[in-house]
Amino acid sequence: MYNEVVMDHFKNPRNVGEIEDADGIGEVGNPLCGDMMTIYLKIKDERIEDIKFKTFGCGSAIAVSSMLTEIASGKTLEEAKNISNKDVANALEGLPKNKLHCSNLGADALHMAIQDYEDKKYGKSRSEPKDKEEHQHASGDNCYCPYCDVELGESATFCEACQRDLEEEH
C-alpha cells in the first residue's frame, strides 16, 4: 500500500511531541477523512530551531507529518513558507492517489504555525494569508474519477460509471 520511505516515517516518526513554550502552533484538520495535525515551532533568529508534531490519522498522515518536520527543521521562515504539500509528498517518493489530498496537510499546518508566530510577534496585520495552492490534477492532464479512473469533466460532482459522489478534487 505504502512505499518504503512512507513506511519508514510511519514506523519511526521523527519529531513526535509538543514544545511547551512554542513560539508558533498550527493545527489543521480535515472533517471528510478525519485527519488532524498539530505543528509546534521554536524560532530563533527567524529560523526554525525546533519543530514537533502530533497527528491523529492514517499511516500517510503520520508519515507526512514526520517528513515535513525533517524538511522544515533548520530552515529560515522564508524558506519554510515555500515548502508545499507537494514537496512533502515528493520527499516521501509518492503517496497513494486517494491520500494525496486528505492526509497531505503537513505544509498547511506548518504555514499556520509560522503565521501564528508572526501574528504574535508583529500583530495580525503584517502577514497576509497565503493563497491556497492551485488546483492540480491528481494525475496527468485530465480529470479522472478517483475511484474507477473513468475520465470526467472538470466540474463533475458524480461519477455515472461507478455511481460515487465526488466530493474530492479530481
Binding site: F10, G57, S60, N98, R164
Partner: peptide, 30 residues
C-alpha cells in the same frame, strides 16, 4: 483518539492481521 489504519499497519508489523473500518482505509475515504 486514534485512527484504525495506523493500528492495522502497526499490528501488521507485529505480524498480526486485522481489518479496520476507518474512513482513511476505505478507499472512498468516508
Amino acid at each position: 483518539y486514534i485512527e484504525g489504519e495506523s493500528v492495522m499497519l502497526m499490528l501488521d508489523e507485529d505480524d498480526i492481521g486485522i481489518s479496520t473500518k476507518s474512513a482513511c482505509a476505505s478507499g472512498s475515504l468516508r
